[in-house]
Structures are given as structure tokens and as C-alpha cells.
Design a protein around this nucleic acid. Structure first.
Length: 602
DNA sequence: CTAGGGTTAG
């Protein structure tokens, strides 16, 4: 350290005389020297030496800046900063502010709040510089009560008009899940900058309010005063992904190309995810292959994406590329790999990966991995083995696991194990009516009518609630939502007329409704009526009416596809000569010329 | 006198 420019400077600066003996002007100069000296420190070593020199010259300005430098530099130390801070007789607003910010920067939120309360107790006035950091602390602690109390105090002090304070409030309320409060702060602002938009858009996105996220973004674009930044566009892409809004996603891609010189890994990864989850697996793949630097998450997204499209072998290839590149797979990556094997029917590969995950990578399987394996094995006919796996699990099997087994039993007509699965679901107080229907249908197939009757009475007794099914479809960059059995949609009349027409055509192709999965205990005719109004069919009818001939149709839905919708859609793709892509809860189905990419294995 | 807010992927 000796002989570095900083130390030479210190010798020059050493002042034997007291500050009172210097003139005001030269005092200012010395202070500035002192400040720039501190700012040039690059580690604690250098800082301590500056500290030692400045100490001789007792000056509160210098002391304050010592605290600030030590607390806020990335090489600094909060302990050391605190020890200087505690030597100051009457620390003021600035000293407290910097200490609070320092604690927030190192994520010591409790200490930040403690200092704030000490500040209040000692009667030191807080100002608009105090609060952004404090709200960040509240946000990080998810401490709504604290945050609201401080917000109230700010109103009393009249500091609520500060832009920085407002932006940090938006974030704080968002993190605490109080989006209405974020919005109310946002709406009351007289001036907004890009950070305000960023905060409000990210808040909506992080709470899964995707449509709202997009409409706020639209508002920002219409208002036109802020450039769309990377981080904002990533939130927007995420919303497009979840809504299946491909056209909007494409526009966002164009916006990115126009506004950002070089896209970082996060932006690229979210773009890939958007394309893949909106059905454009090829586009996703080509972007992925052209990525200069990939990380664990990029691979994770690509593997999961290929899995969703039933392209198991390719997913395994990407996975092995990942290992070759020396990147560590985590549990999510393995979930992607296992799900790729699941949707691709790659049983041996799946079993092998499952074992290697534990043995070679030391990753303990979560309930989701088990769920995937049970489905994989059960679907492939290894129903007994799947049950074995469940029994050997170190964690308590959940509904998803048992339901996976039950559906395998339905498929392979294994009533004995099916009963075990159904019984376990009952013990977990499953409120899913589908479980009862599956078992009931299995009993019916075995002609065990007394069991069928028993299930019906039990269903009636429990009075089940069913998740309403819905489908989203994008037409001219707008997302339309159709709920099963919905008659209230503005386009309702046209849609049902179209459904009628479609059915006519389908009958010619030999279609007959498959009512076996209708969950209501009603007569055949009523079941057929319900089937007709499944949300996916409504969405398809709407898309057939409102898009040009031959244009592909993309639908995203919240539930798994029922058999009837699957058969129906295959036929529609032939009759109307349309490529139809449907994303359900777990995966994609690409319908074309009367066949589906899942090869009826899903 | 000095300093502050938002930020994103599965």
C-alpha cells in the first residue's frame, strides 16, 4: 500500500492545524480534497488509511462522508461504517440516511428499520432521501403494516409528492401483494418516469395479473414519454407467454430489436420461452441455437419447451449439450427432462434420468418429479411399478401423484389399483369431481353397478366444485376468453351458430360425441349439450369466424383436454384445413390434417 | 455541502 498515489496524497493532506485556523475558502477546498480522496479508495485497506489521516482533523463533514463512503461502496463494511457513525456526537439526517441505505444494500433490513426508529426517537428529522430505502426494506420483508405506517407518516410530513418516494411505494405495495395500493399511488402521481412504469408493470406481472400488465404497458406506449426498457419488455414478454399472446409477443420482439442494441441472456431467454409456450417451437429453437452465451435457465426453458411439444429425444440432446458445456442442472431442469420423457413416451430414458438425478447430481426428487415418474410409468403400463414408487417415496404423495396413477389405471383398465388411488384421493379430501367420474366409469365398464351408484350418492353428498374451464384465443392481437358453457359472451350468438354448423360437418366425417368424461350426473342428451359448449370449441368457432381461411389457430386453455375435444379438433383441422395449436395445462397439441402431434398419447 | 427510486427468465 505504501507509495500508492492515494497515500502520497494523504501526506500532502495531513493538516497539523485545527480547522478553525483556516479560512472558510480553504476549508471548503480541504473538504473537497478529502472527499475525492475517499472516493478514490478501492478497498478497506486504503479506506482505513484515509480514515486514520482524516481523524486528526476533526471535521463533521469529513466524518459524514467517511460513513457514507464506507457504508455505500461495494468494497465497504457496514460494521466499520457503524463504528465511525457511533463516534459522531450528533448524527444528523444525512448520517442516518446513509447508514439506513447501507443496511438496505447489504440486505440487512431489520437494522435499517431499527436505525429509522432510533432516528425518530432522537428527534432527527427524516427527509425524502430517507424513505425510498425504507420502503425497499419493507418490500423485502413483505412488511405491509410497517410500510403503511411509514406511508401514513409521510403523508403527515407532506413528502408524498417526491417521485423517488412514490416509485418505491409502488414497488413496496406490489411486493406485499396490495396492487390496488400500488395503482392508487401510481394514479395520483403528477409526474411519472420510466422507473414508475417499470415498477407498476413489474408489480402486475409478479402477481400474475397478465392482462392488466399488458394494458398498463399499452397505456405507457400511448402516453409515449418513456422508452421501453429491457426489464419492462421482459415483464411484457412474460405476460404474453402466460396468455399465449403470440402476435403481441412478436410485436414485443420487434420493439426489442428496435430499442435494444444487444439483448442480454434474460431477454433472450424470455423471448425463447414466449415463442415456445405460444406454440412456435421452431422459432424458439432457432433463437436458442443462435444464442452466444447460454446459462442454466436458458437450457431449462428450452428443455421444458421441447418437452411440452412432445419432442423428447431433442430435449435429451439439449440436456446432454448442457452437461457438456459444464453447466449444472438443477431440479427444474430435471423436471423438464423427466417431463420430456413423459410426453415423448421414453420410459427407459426417464427411469435412467431419474436415477442419475439422485446418484450423480445429488438432487433430491420433489413431489413434482415423483408425479412425473408415476405418470410416465403408469401411462406406459407399469402400473404396479408406479404404485411401488409411490409407496417408497420419502415424502407424502399428493393429489397429483395419485391422480396420475388413477388415470393410468383408467387407461390400462386396472380396477384394483385404481381403487387404491381413488381411496387415497378421497383421504386427501380431493374435491376434484373428475376423480370420482374416472372411478365411476371404471366400475361401469366392469359392470359393478352398485359401486357406480355408491359413487354417485357420495358425489351428491359432497356437492363438488369444479374448476371452470376456459380457453384463450388471440385474434388481431386481442385476447378473447371463452368459459365453458358461457352464454354471456358478446359474440355468443355467432359462436353458437358456428358450433351448430361445425357439428353438421363433423357428423359427415363420422364424429359422435364422447360423453364419457362429462362430469355431471345428467342424461345423455344434456351431456351432449354440455360437451358442445366446452370452452375450446367456443374459442375454435370464434377463431374460424374471425380469421382468414387457412390461417393457423392458437388456443391456450387452463385444463387438460378431454377426449372429445381432442377427436373433435382433429376432425376440424381436416374439414376446415387449419393448423390448430392447443396448449393445455401441461403440453401442446398440434393438430394438422386430422392428426395430432401427441399421437394420441397424453 | 454530500445521497435516493424501478428491473426482468423456468
Amino acid at each position: 500500500m505504501i507509495g500508492t498515489p492515494v497515500l502520497q496524497k494523504i501526506r500532502f493532506l495531513s493538516l497539523p492545524e485545527a480547522p478553525t485556523q483556516t479560512t472558510g475558502l480553504s476549508l471548503k477546498l480541504k473538504e473537497q480534497e478529502c472527499l475525492s480522496l475517499m472516493k478514490r479508495c478501492k478497498n478497506m485497506e486504503e479506506f482505513k488509511q484515509v480514515h486514520a489521516q482524516v481523524l486528526k482533523w476533526e471535521n463533521s463533514f469529513c466524518a459524514s462522508n467517511l460513513v457514507a463512503t464506507c457504508a455505500l461502496s461495494d468494497w465497504g463494511s457496514m460494521d466499520y461504517a457503524c463504528s465511525i457513525f457511533r463516534q459522531i456526537d450528533q448524527p444528523g439526517t444525512f448520517e442516518f440516511n446513509t447508514m439506513i441505505r447501507g443496511y438496505v444494500n447489504v440486505m440487512n433490513m431489520e437494522n435499517a428499520l431499527f436505525l429509522y426508529y432510533e432516528m425518530l426517537e432522537r428527534g432527527v428529522e427524516s427527509d425524502n432521501f430517507t424513505y425510498p430505502a425504507l420502503f425497499k426494506a419493507c418490500a423485502s420483508l413483505r412488511s405491509l403494516e410497517e410500510g403503511m405506517q411509514i406511508h401514513g407518516y409521510i403523508l403527515k410530513r407532506g413528502l408524498e409528492g417526491d417521485l423517488f418516494v412514490q416509485n418505491s411505494l409502488i414497488n413496496m405495495y406490489g411486493k406485499c401483494g396490495k396492487i390496488e395500493l400500488s395503482c392508487s399511488v401510481f394514479e395520483q402521481m403528477s409526474r411519472r418516469d420510466v422507473a414508475s412504469w417499470s415498477a407498476i408493470i413489474a408489480a402486475h406481472a409478479s402477481l400474475g395479473m397478465w392482462s392488466e400488465c399488458l394494458s398498463v404497458f399499452g397505456e405507457m406506449r400511448r402516453e409515449g414519454s418513456c422508452r421501453p426498457e429491457e426489464s419492462i419488455l421482459v415483464s411484457v414478454l412474460s405476460a404474453c407467454t402466460h396468455l399465449g399472446a403470440l402476435d403481441l409477443g412478436r410485436c414485443t420482439h420487434v420493439t426489442l430489436l428496435r430499442n435494444i442494441r444487444e439483448m442480454n441472456v434474460i431477454v433472450q431467454t424470455s423471448l425463447i420461452d414466449m415463442y415456445v409456450k405460444c406454440g412456435c417451437i421452431e422459432k424458439g429453437l432457432s433463437l436458442f441455437q443462435r444464442m452466444a452465451r447460454k446459462n442454466q435457465l436458458s437450457y431449462s426453458v428450452m428443455i421444458t419447451g421441447l418437452a411440452m411439444h412432445g419432442r423428447g429425444m431433442e430435449a435429451l440432446q439439449v440436456f446432454s449439450d448442457m452437461l457438456e458445456e459444464g453447466l449444472k442442472p438443477d431440479d427444474a431442469v430435471f423436471l423438464g427432462v423427466l417431463s420430456a420423457c413423459n410426453h415423448g413416451g421414453l420410459v427407459d430414458e426417464g427411469l435412467q434420468c431419474f436415477n442419475r438425478m439422485k446418484l450423480e447430481h445429488g438432487i433430491e426428487p420433489t413431489i413434482q418429479h415423483y408425479g412425473c415418474m408415476v405418470h410416465l410409468m403408469g401411462r406406459a403400463g407399469m402400473v404396479n411399478e408406479a404404485l411401488e414408487l409411490i409407496r417408497s417415496m420419502p415424502i407424502k404423495p399428493n393429489e397429483v401423484v395419485w391422480r396420475g396413477l388413477l388415470s393410468a389405471c383408467k387407461f390400462h383398465h386396472n380396477l384394483e389399483i385404481g381403487e387404491i388411488a381413488a381411496k387415497s384421493l378421497g383421504e386427501l379430501n380431493s374435491s376434484n369431481p373428475g376423480d370420482y367420474v374416472v372411478l365411476s366409469n371404471m366400475y361401469a365398464r366392469a359392470k359393478r353397478w352398485e359401486n357406480v351408484a355408491k359413487i354417485r350418492t357420495e358425489m351428491a353428498r359432497k356437492g363438488f366444485t369444479q374448476t371452470p374451464g376456459f380457453s384463450l384465443v388471440e385474434v388481431e392481437r386481442k385476447i378473447y376468453k371463452f368459459v365453458s358453457q358461457d352464454m354471456s359472451h358478446p359474440q355468443c350468438k355467432g359462436v353458437y351458430e358456428m358450433i351448430h354448423q361445425m357439428e353438421w360437418q363433423l357428423k359427415f366425417e363420422g364424429y359422435s360425441p364422447d360423453t364419457s368424461q362429462v362430469l355431471f350426473d345428467v342424461d345423455e342428451e344434456e351431456k351432449r349439450q354440455r360437451l358442445k359448449a366446452h370452452s375450446q370449441k367456443l374459442a375454435m368457432a370464434f377463431a374460424l369466424i374471425h380469421t382468414s381461411q387457412g390461417a393457423p389457430i392458437r388456443i391456450a386453455r387452463n385444463l387438460r383436454m378431454c377426449n372429445d375435444c381432442h377427436t373433435y379438433t382433429k376432425l376440424i383441422s381436416v374439414i376446415y384445413q387449419r393448423e390448430i395449436t392447443v396448449r393445455d395445462r401441461n403440453r401442446f397439441h398440434h393438430f394438422k390434417d386430422g392428426t395430432c402431434s401427441c399421437r394420441d398419447y397424453w
